[in-house]
Design a protein around this nucleic acid. Structure first.
Length: 581
DNA sequence: GCCGTTTTCGGCCCGACTGTTTTCAGTCG
């Protein structure tokens, strides 16, 4: 170990696995240190080995969460491709801990017990044991655990090999930025599911036009993010990024760029529909270009293609073969919310609970990013691990918000909360204190196992409270990591309409509501808010992912309340409370 | 193992829930 190419992903995996082994051994605190270091490595844009070659251990030691001991280990990994400390641990823990613990409710200790009792090392081993009904016979395990594992294995199979939008997009944008600067390059765009902003991405597809193909290919192959060249031809290159995804670059002729961009953006189902339309109009559209008979018709832009097909241009986010093609033909595609339309962010956590920055720091960052208001929505006491606020602390926080509001001009900080919905649907804070806030947002953070009926009624009971304005992340899912809890979304949407409660589109890796539910909400006349759920100043950068998801759900600017200026916004959410400001 | 206007040692998110138990370990947020 490791035999696989040593890219950042691999280094991060090794560190993460060390953390899991230490956790299984019951060691305190060290596991978090390894976990944190792994996160840092994964967020790194530059290839670790290039970084090390450039400035040695100094640059690595400087990274947040990485100190002298882990720096030494990274150096060993980068220099030799192995790590003696890790290899020693693996002798006693030869199981694939990363894979096994990616199943919900399976942690390192469970994985180790499964190995000791049944010799389970891999997901395949586990699947065999589950199917042979061997698990529930072990002491401390039971039928329910076995069923949970079976479901977990299924969830994992569905999501295998796909990268989160949040991880793929910054990488792709950095690559595009770089390629656009290469002499000769006239166009460079991301295509594929990434351009459609799907929540998870398989490969990164890049298209360019250039007068100097060799130069572009050379530039691409030697990007700092690239760890390996997998395939190469005169007009295409496939690489492996150090982050762990493949990237396909295709070089196109300027006259084919429009039709190629349509083709490679997809979706496949969308392409089938517009090819059919092309055929009916006497054209042929394929990955090779746009034709009438055997005559190639130049389409330099996508707009040219859609125009020839007598359609409106269709935003990539909705090219999913729902009804966009027929609506575009009737010129009835609505104006979707734009990436610059948000004026406020209504879910912001601070160092009063599990956020990393002060109220003032978050406010200044929001202002720097062009927002004109934010709501501070720290957790409440039921979420003890975050140091959730009780009523006394919330009042203190209100005074701090008053202080910062006086200090910062051009940005209004709203007093809010992310109030926990308790098991019975009551709220974690009293109405008396909720009344003192500008905005009350609620969310479910525990007891995910209720039946669909119980969970739905729990949430709806909370929504009925006339002080509640917004339901945060209504389905509780985390993309690639956690399934939504069982909940009847059509009923929740109807309740949102009836009780005048907005639903959130959360821009973090929750992306909750998801695209389908956004559309469901909009069609029911329910208003949305789009939030970052920022816990760090950098995480205001999640807002565009929320906007993308809203666009995928066909949201218009008028569907989203935090596109309004603060006074109108407060009026729009206001129910039984006096409108402030 | 990392970190530092609570600095070079002593902190570091800790309580609820679940499934298995008859008192608790493991996981999660």
């Amino acid at each position: 170990m490791p035999r696989k190419p040593l890219n950042n992903r691999r280094v991060a995996d090794v560190l993460r696995e060390i953390g899991l082994i230490l956790q299984a051994q019951g060691i305190a605190f060290k596991p978090q240190a390894y976990e944190h270091a792994a996160d840092t490595i994964l967020a790194l844009q530059e290839d670790l080995s290039s970084l090390y070659k450039m400035c040695g251990t100094r640059c690595i030691d400087d990274l947040p969460g990485i100190g002298p001991s882990i720096t030494k280990k990274i150096k060993e990994l980068v220099m030799t491709g192995r790590l003696a400390y890790y290899d020693n641990l693996k002798r006693d823990y030869p199981m694939d801990l990363l894979a096994l613990t990616s199943i919900q409710n399976v942690g390192p200790k469970t994985a180790v017990r499964l190995y000791q009792a049944l010799g389970i090392k891999t997901l395949k081993d586990l699947e065999r044991a589950v199917k042979a009904k061997k698990i529930h016979r072990l002491p401390g395990f039971g039928r329910k655990t076995e069923d949970q594992m079976l479901r977990g294995l299924g969830f994992l199979r569905e999501h295998k090999g796909r990268t989160l939008l949040h991880d793929a997009l910054p990488l792709a944008e950095a690559v595009v930025e770089r390629l656009r600067q290469v002499p000769g390059v006239t166009h460079c765009d991301v295509a594929g599911s990434l351009r459609r902003r799907r929540e998870t991405i398989g490969d990164i597809d890049l298209l360019i036009t250039t007068s100097k193909p060799k130069l572009a290919i050379q530039a691409y192959k030697t990007l700092p993010q690239v760890s390996q060249v997998l395939e190469e031809g005169p007009t295409y290159v496939v690489v492996r990024f150090s982050f762990g995804m493949n990237g396909d670059l295709r070089i196109l002729k300027p006259g084919d760029y429009g039709s190629a961009l349509v083709h490679y953006t997809g979706s496949r189902e969308h392409n089938i529909l517009i090819r059919e339309r092309a055929r009916k109009l006497g054209y042929k559209l394929s990955e090779y270009g746009f034709f009438r008979g055997n005559t190639r018709i130049a389409c330099k832009t996508e707009a040219d293609v859609y125009k020839k097909l007598k359609m409106q241009w269709i935003p990539p986010e909705i090219r999913e073969a729902t009804d966009e093609v027929s609506l575009a033909a009737a010129h009835k595609i609505p104006d979707l919310i734009g990436y610059d339309d948000l004026r406020g962010d209504l879910q912001v956590q601070t160092d009063w609970t599990d956020g990393a920055a002060s109220i003032e720091a978050m406010a200044r960052e929001a202002k720097a990013r062009g927002l004109s208001y934010i709501a501070i929505t720290d957790h409440t006491r039921a979420l003890a691990m975050t140091g959730g606020l009780n009523e006394k602390r919330l009042r203190e926080q209100g005074r701090e918000i008053d202080r910062v509001n006086k200090k910062i001009s051009g940005l209004r900080i709203l007093k809010g909360t992310e109030c926990d919905v308790l098991r019975d649907g009551s709220l974690d804070l009293s109405d008396k204190v909720l009344k003192t806030l500008d905005i009350v947002c609620i969310s479910i953070h525990n007891t995910f196992q209720l039946s669909e009926l119980e969970q739905t009624e729990r949430l709806i009971r909370a929504m009925k409270n006339p002080l509640v304005n917004v339901v945060f992340h209504p389905t509780g899912r985390v993309v690639n990591r956690r399934e939504p809890y069982a909940i009847d979304m059509p009923r929740v949407v109807r309740a949102a309409k009836e009780y005048h409660v907005a639903l959130e589109v959360n821009g973090s890796d929750r992306l909750d509501l998801r695209d389908l539910h956004v559309r469901m909400a909009i069609e029911a006349g329910v208003k949305l808010v789009i939030d970052s759920d920022a816990h760090f100043i950098e995480e205001f950068g999640f807002l565009p992912f929320g906007i993308a998801t809203a666009r995928r759900g066909w949201a218009k600017k008028s569907d989203v309340l935090n596109t309004l200026p603060v006074a109108s916004f407060l009026k729009a959410i206001g129910k039984n409370r006096p409108v402030l400001s």
